[in-house]
Amino acid sequence: MMYDPTGHLLLTPVDKEAPARVRRLRGLGIGQYPEPAFDIFAERLAELTGAPCAMVNFIDEERQFFAGLHAPHGTLVAAEPSAVPSAGPAAGGEARRYMARDHGYCPHVVVRRKALVLEDVRDYPRFAGNPVVDESGIRSYLGAPLIDHTGIALGTVCVVDVEPRRWGTAGLDTIKRMAAELVEQIHRREAGGI
């Protein structure tokens, strides 16, 4: 765990790779605008895991951006726009796509470069105090990093729920497989194959 000089637990990890990530995302032309293909991917991810909400999340130095989002009307992201600060609504006017870097669990996944399974976030003191717990009611999280062929963790794919969830080995395998699939799509796009 990381501590600041005054001895407090830092909830958001230091991200030394952020400048390189931002350059890579800009070079790929992703991470700043919603993309229908990423929305479709997020919807498929939600279906495969049985989660109400799923995201394709790209992270820069200041914020997170959900370039792909599945959050049907009435689910936590759509119902709690204050928990997901944004410059404006997503297509359809329901959910917002920006979130502060110190909210949520994806920044931990990107820095650790490993999948993260939180069946009940309140079981983990480091994560229980995260603003999304109180503001959005998120109780469970499952996410995996999107590590491209240059070795940069571009962001994450993740699912969340307002109820504790037993994601198990099947959930972990699914999120890792889906992360690898999306990275391959990004590589094909970069090569001009999409």
Rank of each mutant, 00 (worst) to 15 (best):
T49L: 03
P19S: 00
A46D: 05
P19A: 03
A20S: 10
A37S: 15
I30Q: 00
R44V: 00
E35M: 13
D39R: 02
A37V: 06
K16H: 05
R21N: 04
F41Y: 05
R44D: 09
G29C: 10
A54Q: 03
A20H: 13
I30N: 04
P19W: 07
A46G: 08
E43I: 09
V22C: 02
C53Y: 01
V22S: 03
T49G: 00
I30D: 01
I40Q: 07
F41C: 02
R26H: 14
V14P: 06
V22W: 01
R24V: 07
V56P: 05
D4R: 10
P52H: 01
Y33P: 00
L25A: 14
T12K: 10
P34L: 10
T49D: 06
R24Y: 06
T6V: 13
P5N: 14
P13Y: 04
A42I: 08
G50Q: 10
L48E: 10
L28H: 08
M55I: 11
A37N: 06
T6E: 14
L28T: 06
P19G: 08
G29L: 11
A18Y: 03
I30H: 07
V56L: 08
Q32E: 15
G31D: 10
R24C: 05
E47P: 00
R26P: 07
L48S: 02
T49P: 02
A54G: 13
G29P: 10
E43K: 14
Y33N: 12
A46C: 05
R24F: 09
R23S: 13
R21K: 14
G50T: 11
R24P: 02
T6S: 13
L48F: 06
L10V: 11
K16V: 08
F41N: 03
V14I: 09
G27M: 09
L11C: 02
G29T: 02
E47T: 12
A42T: 08
A54N: 07
E17W: 04
T12N: 11
A42S: 15
G29N: 03
L11K: 12
G50I: 13
L48T: 05
G29A: 05
